[in-house]
Design a protein around this nucleic acid. Sequence first.
DNA 1: AAATTAAATTAGATTAGCCTAATTTTACTT
DNA 2: AAGTAAAATTAGGCTAATCTAATTTAATTT
Lengths: 218, 218
Amino acid sequence: MHSFTEENYLKAIYKLQETNGEVVATSALAQVMGVHAPSVTDMLKRMAGKKLVTYQKSKGFKLSEKGKKVAVGIIRNHRLWEVFLVDKLGFRWDEVHDLAEQLEHIHSEDLTNKLDKFLGFPKADPHGDPIPDANGVLPKSKSVLLSSLKAGEEGTFTGVTDHSPVFLNYLDKNAISLGNSIKVASIEEYDQTYTLQLTGKKEVTVSFKVVNSLLVSR
Amino acid sequence: MHSFTEENYLKAIYKLQETNGEVVATSALAQVMGVHAPSVTDMLKRMAGKKLVTYQKSKGFKLSEKGKKVAVGIIRNHRLWEVFLVDKLGFRWDEVHDLAEQLEHIHSEDLTNKLDKFLGFPKADPHGDPIPDANGVLPKSKSVLLSSLKAGEEGTFTGVTDHSPVFLNYLDKNAISLGNSIKVASIEEYDQTYTLQLTGKKEVTVSFKVVNSLLVSR
DNA sequence: AAATTAAATTAGATTAGCCTAATTTTACTT
DNA sequence: AAGTAAAATTAGGCTAATCTAATTTAATTT
């Protein structure tokens, strides 16, 4: 159907559109794909030919409806496999990304749906990212950055915006786990460090960078 | 590491060596790979360069130790994934081959071994084919073709040599399942049809082609 | 052993996805 | 509005894996 490369472009474009707005720049895509700009121009022409993206010379590009559908399908696969790897095989949440990047490209609606059922129709992957349903519908998250809470406010830890293993390990080390309740005990005005009160009254003091990578729902 | 294509060549060569003897012909490999002969010559030169096969111009070729190791690793993956698809996800045994062909190329010893453990260290895949262990050791099968039994002899159905969905469905339709006991009730001399007595005294009459594709152990 | 047939290889092209270097287009400054 | 900087594209090349057509090598038949 589509090559792995095409699929990875689609996924990357989808994510860039999600965070950086509708239209994507060649250079931005080149950066996340780890290739040089002319390769992107090349690839986009091919993909535009297949109606996966709409592309106007030097004006940026975005996914077509068709392209979006493919991208969401891949994200669904990716997140379901991550759940499998963690829940069934016992991998840690910081180990599964690269494996899921490979598994996500195996195309079979039947496989995906059977896997979904086997896992008990999970709503989110091990990092809290929502899993699109079989129709490609992504539940709209109501989570906010922990950095947006004021001192005294509280929420439930629902996800991360930084998926790097080093950050995930940092959270493990400080016993900050998905589903925990987190209360902002205090905020140091001088350097924006946050003291957090976790489930069981444990307190940790963390930098702004940390609270700015945590999602909570209130 | 190696491309999917290379890995598929390695697997195909391994299987040809297993059934047709040590040295493999260009044309035979071209046929099973579904490509034309010059493509095979090309590919083999590349693979010889990587020490995956030993190759002498116009003299055929065979796997090196290194190549054999890679091939067996892929077969291990393939068969473990087939067990997963059937035992855990509920696929039928005639549906899993193509999916396993994709899953087998995901490389991670860690993944393979965790999957193996999750499945309870199975010894054979859903078609009865033996699964190499983590060291690449394949248990030597003591099974024989059902066609080699004489009238009155009996065995346990342990595997098939024809893996085509149409044959597997035929077996399903006649309630011939792995693990069943099968007794050769009689052999018709005229056309070599076999009447088999299955577990529970059910009798079926089948052609020579069928008994020549069934493996039994005595 | 010579002739014919079959198998394998070489030669030369093609496609996807990438590259570097050069050029063009767009955006930003003054 | 002109000049510069940044971003995007074109031009031309490379590699892996394939192809067809032509040639060479090996095997088989008479």
